[in-house]
């Protein structure tokens, strides 16, 4: 049997009295693209943030390669290097050029050779069509370009899994596509990804598996994204998908 790359066991997350995730379980296999959808406040972004320990959790565990992500403070940097994360608001470092943004962590955290890391960074930038912007600052780029740089920055660390947290939610509609094309090509190349998104058409196209989350629980799960979007089983999923239709 195939060993899951990412395992979430009995994850419990609360903010004060408010329960965000209750007894949450999930396994993601290597090369799998899992898309999480659901209404706002359902806990999907919090779930991603719990996976790389940006949020503390009240119970359960997150395992990557069977190793706990936040067993101890010393270990956390090593584990986070294996988990790439891209945020809705890009979060490039405004005082560094595009190239320096990408190289900072490989050089300082992974202690890689600058020339070698730079070569890889430029190859990746070329793939997303931004090699000529290497010396620009983030403020000179459009939202879609910044988000592509943020993806490259995460990829340059050679993560085993990528977490994409509503990466097109802050973008103008015409820029959504250029970013999602990049993600699609990553999926084709076999990257393991956990994606939170509101782009239903994109979810249908890219997902190996769809999770519909509501109130901190998986309400519906489907390995047949096309069927799920055509004919969801649960009422809650039906109601949710209906909100995207205009007739």
């Amino acid at each position: 049997m195939e060993q899951a790359l990412l395992k979430i066991n009995h994850l419990h997350k609360t903010y004060g009295d408010q329960v965000i995730l209750k007894d949450f379980n999930l396994e993601v296999n290597k090369g799998e693209v899992v898309v999480i959808i659901g209404p706002s406040g359902c806990g999907k972004s919090t779930l991603l943030r719990c996976i790389n320990a940006l949020e503390d959790i009240q119970g359960g565990e997150v395992l990557l390669d069977n190793e706990a992500v936040f067993k101890e403070k010393k270990n956390i940097s090593k584990m986070r290097q294996k988990i790439g994360m891209v945020f809705q608001s890009y979060e490039l470092f405004p005082h560094k050029t595009i190239l320096e943004n990408i190289l900072l962590a490989p050089i300082k955290v992974q202690k890689r050779n600058r020339a070698e890391a730079e070569k890889e960074a430029l190859e990746l930038l070329t793939k997303v069509g931004l090699a000529d912007r290497r010396d620009d600052y983030p403020r000179q780029l459009s939202g879609g370009q910044k988000q592509r740089v943020a993806i490259v920055r995460a990829l340059c660390m050679h993560p085993e899994i990528l977490l994409l947290d509503e990466i097109t939610a802050a973008l103008d509609p015409e820029m959504v596509r250029e970013v999602l094309e990049v993600v699609l090509s990553l999926a084709k190349a076999g990257s393991t990804m956990l994606i939170v998104t509101h782009e239903m058409a994109f979810a249908r196209a890219i997902a190996d598996r769809i999770l519909f989350l509501d109130d901190g629980e998986i309400v519906e799960e489907s390995s047949q994204p096309k069927d799920f979007f055509k004919q969801p089983v649960t009422d809650r999923a039906k109601a949710f998908l209906k909100t995207f239709d205009y007739e």
Partner: peptide
């Protein structure tokens, strides 16, 4: 979230201060 973005790249708190927060 700038702190978080740095940490998500595996930076330790002191690296985060030194390379990301203090320069800004």
């Amino acid at each position: 979230i700038q702190y978080e973005s740095a940490q998500a790249l595996g930076m330790t708190p002191s690296m985060t201060y030194l390379y990301v927060i203090l320069p800004q």
